[in-house]
Design a protein around this nucleic acid. Structure first.
Length: 937
RNA sequence: GCUCGAGUGGUGGAAUUGGUAGACACGUUGGACUUAAAAUCCAAUGAACAGUAAUGUUCGUGCGGGUUCAAGUCCCGCCUCGAGUACCA
C-alpha cells in the first residue's frame, strides 16, 4: 500500500470536523491548558508559508498536551477591523464587511488544509457586532472608572463622586489631568451638571483631550507616523501639519508602575521585556519649580540630576508650551514667534532625523534660581519635547551634552560644578564618579547624598519634590476611520454620555462614502442615521437631532488594538450573549499558558492588552491581572528572491555567471519558475508577461541560472510561497515537519524548498515500517533490544524537545529513529504503536491513519503519551574517545564499571597509546568515567 | 548613539554541566535498478598535504588575546550582520 497523503489528509480533516475532536470543554476533570496564537488580520493576499510557522508550533504543543491528559483550549479567530479593507472600500465602494468576509473564508480554507487542531466553535472576529458589543462595554467600564493611587487600583467613579460630595478633591489621591483645580465639597455641590462632568472627565480612565495629530488637509485625514515620508503624505505627497484635535485617550500611565512590576512574574523573552521596560521608561529624579521674574507663574521641570542644580545656567522650554507666549518680552516677540512657526511646520520625523542642527530662541524672560536667586535666561528649543515630562528642562551644560551643545551654540555661560573634571570640550554625565563643587550646601558630596539633600531643601521651601517620571504616554484611542468599533457615546451639550450597556451593540452605520466628509469630519460623518434617541434608546436619523432627547453620536471609531486587547478572554466563553465571558469560564481557564506570536507587537498589543487585563482585574471582572504566563516569539520566514539579468537597453537576458560581462539590470522573477538548482524555466518565464515573450536568453552550460537573495516575503518581490501548493504537492504533514525542521522557532530563516524532499522521504520511510505493497506488516512479536532502545531514546528526546520548544531537533530525532528501525527491519506493534503517538503532534494525519490501521477506533489525539523507561538505555560499555593533549586520536570500547585506575591501566597498555606517545612519559592522565580520556605529555 | 540577539561545511542547521565539532537533512559525486527518465536504494562528502591504498599529519566554529588536562561553549578586547528604539532632561 502506498502512502497517499492527499487522500489521508482529506479523510482525517473531515473526521476531525465531523467529530468535533478538538472542542474544548469548560467543565472537565482534566487539568486545563490554554495555548494561544496571535490572531491574524485577514488580508486579501491570503496566507504564505511564513504565517503558519507559529501556528504549527502551537499546534504541536497543543496536541502534545492533549496526549499528556490536559483539557486543551486552542482557539483561533480574526483581528478583522483594519485599514486595508477600508482602503479597498474607498477605491471600489465595496463594503469592508464583504471584503473581510471573503478574506476570512480564504484564510479558513488555507488553515484547514494544514490540519490545525483549533476549536473553531470558539472563533471570534473583532468586527462582529456580537464581539464588539463587549469591546464597547469595556470602554464604558473604563469611562466609569478612576485610578485611586492610595488603593493602587481602579475604582468605580461613583466612589470618587461621593468623595467629592463629602470633602472636595483636596484629599483625593488620583491619577488625573495636570490642570485640575482644587475645590471643596461645598463648591462641588454647587457646580452645574456640565461643570461636574467636565471635572470628572479629568479623572476617568478614558477621557477626551486635545491631542496633537498629523493632519493632512488635502486628504482630510489624520496620518500615522509611518504614512508620512519627508514631511509629506505617502499617498499623494501632500503637506502634513501638526494639529490639535479632541480625541479619546486611555489613561494607561496610571498603570505604568504595575506594568513594569508585572514583567518580573512573566516568562516572556528577555528582549521583549526589555523593550516594554524601555517603552515605559521609568526615571527617578525630582520636580523643581522655578519662579519667573516678574510673573506669577512657575516653570516646573523634571530632572534626574537634582544634584547639579547649581550648574543651571539657562532654562529651555518646548516651543509649543502655552507659557512661552505669556512670558516672551516685546523685544523677543518676533524671534520667538517665527521660531514657533518654523517648529510647527517640522514633523516629528524631521525633528528626529535632524539631531545635529541646534536651534532655539531667547524669550527675554528670566527664571529665579531657588537657592542662589540668580536670574536664569529662559530659552525655547525644539530639542525639548512638549510631550515628555513638563516640556521644560533646567539646562545644566556641564552635565548634559545637549545642554552643552546648546550653550556653546548660543554663547551661554557654562558653569563647572564638578570637582576635578574638565568640561570645556564635553559634558560630564557620569553619576557614579561625581563629586560636586561650587555648590553651596552640597559642595563635596556625591550624586546620591547631594540629590537627597537638594530634594529635602526644595520640599521645605515648597519648590519641589522627589518624583518618578515615565516616558509612557496616555494612548490615543480615537481613529478618524470607518472600519472600526463605533464608540457607545453621544454628546449632550458637548459632554460625552455613555449609552446604557443593555442597548449595545451600537452597530456601524451605513455610509455612501468611506472618506472623511467635506468639512473634515471622520467617515461616520457621512452617515444619515447616526443620532441617539434617549427615549427610544435606538440609533435614529440625524434629522431628529434636537439636543433634548435626540443627540449626535460620536464620529470617531476605535483603533485596531481595541478588539485585540481582550480577545483571549472571550475565547474562554466565546458565544456568551449576556456577559463578555462567564465567571465560571474565566475562573476555569484563568489565563493563557502559552502564547506564540511575533515580536513586532512588543510595545503595542502586548502592552495595551496587559493594561486592559489589569483594569478588568481591578474592577473584579477577571481573576488574574496578567493574562499570558509564557510567551514565545516566532522568527520571521524570509523569502528567497530570484533575479534574472536583462542587458540594458535590450530584450536580452544573460545567465547569472555572465552578468559581469554586460551592463545589466536585475529583475525579480517569480520563484515558482526556478528549481532547486537555481535553473530558470525559460518557457514559463517567457509566458509570464508579454514583454518577455520574444526575449533572447544567453545560457551558460545549456542552463539559465538565476541570482538569489534573501528578502522579506512579499507579493511585490515575487518570492511568496503559498502553503496550499506545498500541501498539494507534498502534503500538510510534510509542510508541518519541514517548517519545524528549518531551524529554531525563534530565529528568522529563509524559506527554501530545496530541503523539503528530505522530510517527504522521511514520511514515506515511516509508512514503510507499517506497510509494504500488500498491506499492513505489523506483527505482535517481541521487539528486539535495539528497537526498544531506539524507541525509548526517541521518547526521551521527543519529550524533552517539546518541553524546550526545540521542534527542529525533535524532527531530526524522528528521522534517526526511523532510519534505525528500518535498519532493524522492525515491524513490531510494541514499537510502532508508541512511535505513531510520538509523531502525531507533528504529522497528525499520517499518525491517525497508522493508528486506525493498527485497529484503534478512536482518534489518536488523546492517546496516552508513551512513558520513557531508562532501563532500555542502560549500557554496559562505552566507546571512549582517547585524546592526546586534547586531540582525539582513537576510540576504545571499555566496560562502564571500570574504575579510573583500571581504565588508565588498560589505556596505557594499548599499543596505539604507545605509538602516540612515541617513547615519552605522560605528565598526566585525565579519566572522566563515562565521558573521555585525555593523556597529557 | 543606546539596548537586545546572532556569526559553525557548498546550504538549512546539531552539539547536555566545558569532554569525540559538523548529528539530521539538502546539494554534489559515484554506483544499483531501468531501453531511458523519474522514483527508490547503496556508498562517499569540512579543508589542505602525504600515500597505490589502509591510513596518517596539519588546519578548522567572525577576529585577536586569556583561563583550562580539555573551549563552538567561560573571561577580556574588537569586527560584521539583524531586530528594536531614539533629542526622555
Amino acid at each position: 500500500m502506498k502512502y497517499n497523503f492527499n487522500e489521508i489528509e482529506a479523510k482525517w480533516q473531515k473526521y476531525w470536523r465531523e467529530n468535533k475532536t478538538f472542542k474544548a470543554e469548560n467543565n472537565s476533570d482534566k487539568p486545563k491548558y490554554y495555548v494561544l496564537d496571535m490572531f491574524p488580520y485577514p488580508s486579501g493576499a491570503g496566507l504564505h508559508v511564513g504565517h503558519p510557522l507559529g501556528y504549527i508550533a502551537s499546534d504541536i504543543y497543543s496536541r502534545f498536551k492533549r496526549h499528556q491528559g490536559f483539557n486543551v483550549l486552542h482557539p483561533m479567530g480574526y483581528d478583522s477591523f483594519g485599514l486595508p479593507a477600508e482602503q479597498y472600500a474607498i477605491q471600489t465602494g465595496q463594503h469592508p464587511a464583504i471584503t473581510t468576509e471573503a478574506n476570512i473564508t480564504r484564510y479558513r480554507e488555507q488553515l484547514d488544509k494544514i490540519g490545525f487542531s483549533f476549536d473553531w466553535s470558539r472563533e471570534v472576529r473583532t468586527s462582529n457586532p456580537d464581539y464588539y458589543k463587549w469591546t464597547q462595554w469595556i470602554f464604558i467600564q473604563l469611562f466609569n472608572s478612576w485610578y485611586n493611587v492610595d488603593a493602587d487600583r481602579a475604582e468605580d467613579i461613583a466612589r470618587l463622586i461621593s468623595a467629592f460630595e463629602v470633602a472636595g478633591n483636596a484629599q483625593v489621591n488620583a491619577v488625573c489631568d495636570d490642570d485640575v483645580a482644587v475645590f471643596t465639597a461645598a463648591e462641588w455641590n454647587e457646580y452645574t451638571w456640565e461643570e461636574k462632568q467636565s471635572i470628572l472627565l479629568k479623572y476617568r480612565l478614558t477621557y477626551l483631550a486635545e491631542t496633537e495629530v498629523n493632519w493632512c488637509p488635502a486628504l482630510g485625514t489624520v496620518l500615522a507616523n509611518d504614512e508620512i515620508v519627508n514631511g509629506v503624505s505617502e499617498r499623494g505627497g501632500h503637506p502634513v501639519v501638526r494639529k490639535k484635535m479632541m480625541q479619546w485617550s486611555m489613561r494607561i500611565t496610571a498603570y505604568a508602575q504595575r506594568l513594569l512590576d508585572g514583567l518580573d512574574r512573566l516568562d516572556w523573552p528577555q528582549p521583549l521585556k526589555e523593550s516594554q521596560t524601555n517603552w515605559i521608561g521609568r526615571s527617578k529624579g525630582a520636580s523643581v519649580k522655578f519662579k519667573i521674574d516678574g510673573h506669577d507663574e512657575f516653570i516646573e521641570v523634571f530632572t534626574t540630576r537634582p544634584d547639579t542644580i547649581f550648574g543651571v545656567t539657562f532654562m529651555t522650554l518646548a516651543p509649543e508650551l502655552e507659557l512661552v507666549k505669556a512670558i516672551t518680552t516685546a523685544e523677543q516677540k518676533e524671534a520667538v514667534e517665527s521660531y514657533i512657526e518654523a517648529t510647527a511646520k517640522r514633523s516629528e520625523r524631521d525633528r528626529m532625523a535632524d539631531v545635529k542642527t541646534i536651534s532655539g530662541a531667547f524669550t527675554g524672560a528670566y527664571a529665579i534660581h531657588p537657592f542662589t536667586e540668580e536670574k536664569i535666561p529662559i530659552w525655547i528649543g525644539d530639542y525639548v519635547l512638549a510631550s515628555y515630562g513638563t516640556g521644560a528642562v533646567m539646562a545644566v551644560p556641564c552635565g548634559d551634552q545637549r545642554d552643552h551643545d546648546f550653550a556653546n551654540h548660543f554663547n551661554i555661560p557654562i558653569k563647572n560644578i564638578f570637582e576635578g573634571v574638565d568640561i570645556t570640550e564635553e559634558a560630564f554625565a557620569d553619576k557614579d564618579n561625581t563629586k560636586i563643587a561650587n555648590s553651596d550646601f552640597i559642595t563635596g558630596l556625591g550624586f546620591k547624598e547631594a540629590t537627597q539633600l537638594v530634594i529635602e531643601r526644595l520640599e521645605a521651601m515648597g519648590q519641589g519634590e522627589g518624583k518618578i517620571n515615565y516616558r509612557l504616554r496616555d494612548a490615543v484611542f480615537s481613529r478618524q476611520r470607518y472600519w472600526g468599533e463605533p464608540f457607545p457615546v453621544y454628546y449632550k451639550n458637548g459632554i460625552p454620555q455613555m449609552i446604557e450597556a443593555e442597548h449595545l451593540p451600537i452597530r456601524l452605520p451605513e455610509v455612501e462614502k468611506y472618506l472623511p466628509t467635506e468639512t473634515g469630519e471622520p467617515p461616520l460623518g457621512n452617515a444619515n442615521v447616526w443620532a441617539w434617541d434617549t427615549d427610544k434608546n435606538e440609533v435614529v436619523s440625524n434629522d431628529l437631532i434636537d439636543n433634548e432627547t435626540v443627540f449626535p453620536l460620536e464620529l470617531n471609531t476605535m483603533p485596531g488594538w481595541a478588539g485585540s486587547s481582550w480577545y483571549f478572554n472571550r475565547y474562554m466563553d466565546a458565544i456568551n450573549e449576556n456577559e463578555f465571558a462567564s465567571q465560571e469560564a474565566l475562573n476555569y481557564w484563568k489565563d493563557v499558558d502559552l502564547y506564540i506570536g511575533g515580536s513586532e507587537h512588543a510595545t503595542g498589543h502586548l502592552l495595551y492588552s496587559r493594561f486592559w487585563q489589569k483594569f478588568l482585574f481591578d474592577r473584579e471582572l477577571l481573576p488574574v491581572d496578567e493574562y499570558a504566563k509564557k510567551l514565545i516569539n516566532q522568527g520571521m520566514i524570509l523569502g528567497t528572491s530570484a533575479f534574472v539579468y536583462r542587458v540594458e537597453g535590450e530584450n536580452k537576458f544573460v545567465s547569472k555567471g555572465l552578468k559581469n560581462n554586460y551592463k545589466v539590470q536585475a529583475i525579480h522573477a517569480d520563484v515558482s519558475f526556478v528549481n532547486a538548482s537555481d535553473e530558470l524555466d525559460v518557457e514559463a518565464f517567457k509566458n509570464w508577461r508579454p514583454e518577455f515573450k520574444d526575449a533572447e536568453f544567453v545560457y551558460e552550460e545549456d542552463k539559465y541560472l538565476v541570482g538569489r537573495e534573501v528578502e522579506k516575503m512579499s507579493k511585490s518581490k515575487y518570492n511568496v510561497v503559498n502553503p496550499d501548493d506545498i500541501c498539494e504537492e507534498y502534503g500538510a504533514d510534510t509542510l508541518r515537519l519541514y517548517e519545524m525542521f528549518l531551524g529554531p522557532l525563534e530565529q528568522a530563516k529563509p524559506w527554501n524548498t530545496a530541503g523539503i524532499t528530505g522530510v517527504a522521504g522521511f514520511l514515506k520511510k515511516l509508512w514503510r515500517l507499517y506497510f509494504d505493497d500488500n498491506g499492513l506488516v505489523v506483527t505482535d512479536n517481541e521487539p528486539s533490544k535495539e528497537s526498544l532502545k531506539t524507541l525509548h531514546k526517541t521518547i526521551k528526546k521527543a519529550t524533552e524537545d517539546v518541553a524546550n520548544f526545540s521542534f527542529n531537533t525533535s524532527v531530526s530525532g524522528f528521522m534517526i529513529a526511523v532510519n534505525e528501525l528500518t535498519a532493524h527491519k522492525c515491524h513490531e506493534r510494541a514499537i510502532l504503536e508508541p512511535l505513531a503517538i510520538l509523531i502525531s503532534p507533528y504529522a497528525p494525519h499520517i499518525a491517525e491513519e497508522l493508528w486506525a490501521s493498527l485497529g484503534h477506533a478512536e482518534s489518536i489525539s488523546t492517546a496516552k503519551w508513551p512513558e520513557f523507561d531508562e532501563k532500555h538505555l542502560v549500557e554496559s560499555s562505552k566507546e571512549y574517545p582517547v585524546s592526546f593533549n586534547g586531540k582525539m586520536r582513537f576510540k576504545k570500547e571499555l566496560p562502564l564499571d571500570l574504575t579510573k585506575e583500571e581504565i588508565e591501566k588498560v589505556i596505557m597498555a594499548d599499543e596505539r597509546t604507545q605509538k602516540q606517545l612515541n617513547g615519552r612519559t605522560p605528565k598526566k592522565v585525565i579519566v572522566v568515567p563515562g565521558k573521555i580520556i585525555n593523556i597529557v605529555g
